[in-house]
Amino acid sequence: MERRNFLKSCACVAAIGTTAGLASKADAASKKPDSQRPKPGDLLVIEDGHGNARPISASELVLEAQQVMAFPQDPESGVIRSGSRFNKVMVMRLDPALMDETTKNNSEDGVVAYSAICTHQGCDVNSFVADKKEFFCFCHYSRFNPYAAGDVTNGPATRRLAMLPIKIVDDLIVVKEEFTRSPGYKK
């Protein structure tokens, strides 16, 4: 959050070499708890835009309903890891009978979590096309198969989405392992 505040006030003039300072601040920010990647034990929560958050319960997820956008939260400190948009994940309930083995291993009771960052140009993958059973990126129309570990079904993306393995504990969705690959894209 400090980085965000810093940049908000940054109608700044940077002389030669100051860009290096900006880069170091970015590096430092990426090490802060709110920017660290999800860790095993984190809860998946929904933010409301006013700094409030609530955990997602597995029972509220309806089969193949539009995905829920969530961030991981450290249950001990309460820090929500929304300092990096690469931590944004899509959570939804699928039919376990249609899942491939990898997807099944990374899910529980049909609930899956995927990185919401398109591997093509980094847009948010925020749509689910129900009749095709595919995630859809509005920027360039890339599509991904949530039943096949995020495999690309239509380009221009060429790399599958990162998956965030989860488990369900007391109806809450808990991170089981780190992302299956680095979320994000290459410029």
């Binding site: 940049l7 908000k8 109608a11 700044c12 003039v13 002389a15």
Partner: peptide
């Protein structure tokens, strides 16, 4: 080579 850089707004916003 860069002579200077001035940010006029916050990309994160």
């Amino acid at each position: 080579e860069e002579a200077w850089e001035t940010c006029v707004a916050d990309w994160q916003d």
